[in-house]
Design a protein around this nucleic acid. Structure first.
Length: 508
RNA sequence: GGCCCCGUAGCUCAGCGGAUAGAGCGGCAGACUUCGAAUCUGCGCGCGGAGGUUCGACUCCUCCCGGGGCCA
């Protein structure tokens, strides 16, 4: 575990304690208020190394901690915790730092900064995007936003599979509609086919434009649209750069050397590249774009691709760990308690556009990203609309709007982070919550786990609403401090919402 | 047959080695002449099972049971 590189008041306290203890310190918020503002198990972890009794060591560390600036009281507790209580001045300092950082609070923790490409969605352009792609988009885009917030140089890519049997079938179907005929029996039957036919021009490019429109409305802005037909022109270069071998008339890559369970064919005996061959050319294309880290966002049905993609990175002489494949579990749709089967070809799918029309972009993005990506999501089609009213996203947005209202009423009144004496427990809880944000954002980024953001945002809103109900902001003795607290809370909520592609309204 | 994901409150899910396991929804009972009630307050003997590692396990390891998926 690398030591946290986070700036911030909390991280500084951790570093000071780490110096005293000789091991890394991670402070946590104890569930029990009697255990103080912060606690650490550092003595328990250090005791075996130091060959000391944990409680005794904790006692010494507590003594050292008590001497640190900002620490009001420090005590040891069985079996070896060190509990800390902070001074009002420390809270003022912590809040002041959040205000000073403004929208950049918690940002810029990437080390080293890298050029990163996130490939997301990449659904076949044979039809509109479905809710399955919606999860890919919501998750992949949130990861990309976190990486950018960290300070990386991030590009979003959509890989357009514009070759192959499905594409031929799609073109045939559109052409049939254009002639006023039914699509062939194995063709695409959805209503959108006639719409594409009416537009004229290349059906695949028309479809790609539709997809781009859907993603833009979903606030996922793809920078680079890479076509398979273009990328495949680089396959000769890829073959030259890879340690291939020939067998049974085909060209192979020994992917087993990098942990795949069998070698893979790049070019068939008849000279046509396989899908894997196209992947090789595609990866070469990415490396030529100067990316130091490649991230693929794929559905669980693609988990078999992980080993071979990483093998390609290794075969190109790159570090396989810098090619990440993020696998998210699938979205299941239920209707009247029954699992609904979808087929893009048959046209009986639930579309991304339908989902956003039904419940709105904010609720859809929140919902799709608030579950862990390794968790299957169930969407009940019947309840989707109703669920949107119950969506916690509104709870969080309401906190933001409520603060906006207070700040409007405050006019030009002075805000100051300086603590006006002893603070109420609700004020301390809120500051502590906000102080967690840099660590939380860094962990969410490193784990590629954006669902931690909405979970945290609910807690922030929770702490704020509680504070609001028990204390007046305006015309109170502590008005200046509380206005600063409001501003900091609003900034953190806005940032959380932005990281998952949700709007932060001034009014609701 | 091999591989991947998941079993936590009635439902949907957080929790990724620490103290008394938390939210939302649903249910019950309260709080608006006060900065926005889309809010707040109170009510919950739940970690699928069995071993193991550890001072300490929802968390890590093994096996079993159950659900979903991929490949063969």
């Amino acid at each position: 575990m690398p030591a946290s590189r986070c700036a911030g008041t909390l991280a500084r306290l951790e570093r000071a304690l780490a110096e005293a203890a000789g091991v890394e310190v991670k402070l946590e918020r104890p569930g029990n208020p009697a255990h103080g503002d912060y606690a650490t198990n550092v003595a328990l972890r250090a005791a075996p190394v130091r060959r000391r009794a944990p409680l005794e060591l904790a006692g010494e560390l507590a003594e050292a901690a008590a001497a640190l600036p900002g620490v009001k009281r420090a005590s040891a507790a069985r079996p070896g915790f060190v509990n800390l209580e902070m001074t009002p001045a420390w809270y003022g300092e912590a809040l002041g730092e959040i205000i000073a950082a403004g929208p950049d609070y918690g940002a810029g923790f990437a080390s080293p900064r890298e050029r990163v490409q996130v490939e997301l969605v990449s659904a076949n352009p044979t039809g509109p995007l479905t809710v399955a792609s919606a999860r890919n988009a919501a998750y992949g885009d949130a990861v990309a936003r976190l990486l950018a917030f960290a300070g990386h140089d991030v590009e979003r890519e959509y890989y357009v599979n514009d070759l192959g049997e499905q594409i031929d079938r799609f073109r045939d179907s559109v052409e049939a509609r254009a002639r006023g005929e039914e699509p062939p029996p194995d063709g695409y039957l959805g209503d959108y086919v006639a719409g594409i036919a009416a537009l004229g021009g290349d059906p695949v490019e028309r479809m790609v434009e539709e997809i781009r429109g859907s993603l833009d409305r979903f606030r996922v802005h793809v920078g680079e649209w890479v076509h398979q037909s273009i990328v495949e022109q680089e396959i000769e270069d890829a073959l030259a750069a890879l340690p291939t071998y020939e067998a049974e008339g085909a060209i192979w890559l020994r992917t087993t050397e990098w942990g795949d369970d069998k070698d893979r064919v790049l070019v068939r005996s008849d000279g046509r590249p396989t899908y894997f061959g196209a992947d090789a050319a595609h990866i070469l294309h990415k490396y030529r774009g100067g990316f130091e880290r490649l991230i693929y966002v794929l559905g669980a049905d693609h988990h078999g691709y992980v080993a071979r993609l990483k093998a390609l990175a290794g075969a190109f002489g790159r570090d396989p760990d810098r090619l990440e494949v993020l696998i998210y579990q699938l979205v299941h749709l239920t209707e009247r308690g029954e699992t609904r089967k979808m087929s893009k070809r048959r046209g009986d799918v639930v579309l991304l556009d339908e989902l956003t029309d039904e419940i709105g972009v904010d609720a859809a993005r929140w919902y799709l990203v608030s579950r862990g990506h390794e968790q299957t999501i169930e969407i009940d089609v019947d309840l989707a609309g109703e669920r949107s009213e119950k969506n916690p996203v509104y709870y969080v947005q309401y906190a933001h709007a409520r603060i906006a209202g207070i700040l409007r009423n405050a006019g030009s009144a002075r805000a100051s982070a300086e603590a006006p004496g002893e603070l109420a427990s609700e004020e301390r809880d809120l500051v502590k919550r906000l102080a967690e944000f840099p660590t939380l954002a860094e962990e969410a980024t490193e784990r590629r786990a954006p669902h931690a953001i909405p979970t945290y945002a609910i807690r922030v809103a929770d702490d704020f609403h509680r504070f609001y109900h028990r204390h007046r902001v305006l015309e109170s003795e502590a008005q200046a401090f509380r206005l600063a607290l409001c501003r900091a809370t609003q900034a953190v909520i806005a940032r959380c919402l932005d990281l998952i592609g949700v709007e932060a309204p001034e009014r609701m």
